[in-house]
Computed example of a mutant assay.
Amino acid sequence: MNKFDKVRLQKKSDKEQADLFADSMDMIARERAILKLYDGNDTIQVHNLSHAVSLINKQLEHEYDNMMMNTSTEELHILHDGIKTLIHGWQHSNEIDTELAKELQNPQNFSDYQDYIKHLLRLSKLETTIKVLGNFKQ
């Protein structure tokens, strides 16, 4: 493999990592929006489907803005490190310890990273898992 092919592969890998990071941050915003909408309740009262969509979109927009404006540099580093570790754990899930795989909600069961983080999102464990991994790495 020549030098240019190596650079091309590295750029492709960097873009893939950036896309996975962006997907993870998007899902964190969605998790925060859902948790705030429910605010400890089991249900949300809406008038109709368009009202539900409006509530969700408004809260999601608020969470995106909040993340952009209020996330400290330290928290961003923790999220970055945690997401990198989560991605690595998913990519190498067959190589990690059984107990760790259990704690990470069995990433080996997911062939697609987006499906894996959506699973963590449904469990309301995405941000918590990422922060634990980010703090553990430090």
Rank of each mutant, 00 (worst) to 15 (best):
S54E: 15
A29G: 08
V53N: 03
N48I: 08
I56G: 06
D23V: 09
E75P: 05
N57S: 09
I117P: 02
N70D: 05
K102E: 14
E31C: 07
N106A: 02
I28E: 02
L20F: 07
D14A: 00
H119W: 04
Q45F: 04
K36N: 14
M68P: 01
D115V: 01
D112Q: 03
E95L: 11
G89T: 04
E63H: 10
E61Q: 12
K58A: 07
I83E: 12
E61F: 06
K36T: 11
I44N: 15
N48W: 12
T43W: 08
Y113E: 00
W90S: 02
N109W: 09
K118Y: 08
I28Y: 13
I34F: 13
I96Q: 01
S72E: 05
H92K: 04
H88A: 06
I28V: 13
Q59V: 05
E99K: 00
M27I: 02
P107G: 02
M68E: 11
G40V: 05
L37C: 08
Q91G: 00
E99W: 07
H88V: 02
G82T: 07
I34T: 14
S50K: 04
S24P: 10
E75F: 12
Q10V: 01
V53K: 13
Y64H: 15
I78K: 05
N41W: 09
S13E: 00
I96E: 01
A29Y: 11
S24K: 14
L35Y: 13
H80F: 06
D112E: 00
H88M: 07
I44T: 09
V53P: 00
Q59P: 09
L104W: 03
N94W: 02
L100R: 02
V53T: 04
T43F: 12
I78S: 04
G82L: 10
A29D: 02
E99Q: 08
K12M: 02
N41S: 10
S111I: 01
L79E: 13
